[in-house]
Amino acid sequence: MESWDIIITLLIIAGFLFFLSAIIALYWAAKNGQFESIEKGARVVFDEDEPEGVEMDAFPQSKPKKQKNHS
């Protein structure tokens, strides 16, 4: 059980360091602009290959309804 005590002391210290780092990281993220222009970030899933405004999937053997109204 003594070895447990040493491990645990170390781990508690580690736990506190981690908690501290969370605050630092949040500060970094804010300063770094991760929370700015946030709505633009939502568009990073699109690019020229798979652009915004185009449906990307449909059942096989059926044409995707690209710009048409659905039938």
Partner: peptide, 27 residues
């Protein structure tokens, strides 16, 4: 940094739930 943040959230609960009960009940 990202690694540390993500890690810290879990380390926090681990200290709070697992370690504290070990200190409390392990002896």
């Amino acid at each position: 940094t990202i690694f540390l943040v993500i890690f810290s959230t879990l380390a926090f609960s681990w200290v709070g739930l697992v370690l504290s009960s070990h200190l409390n009940l392990g002896g």
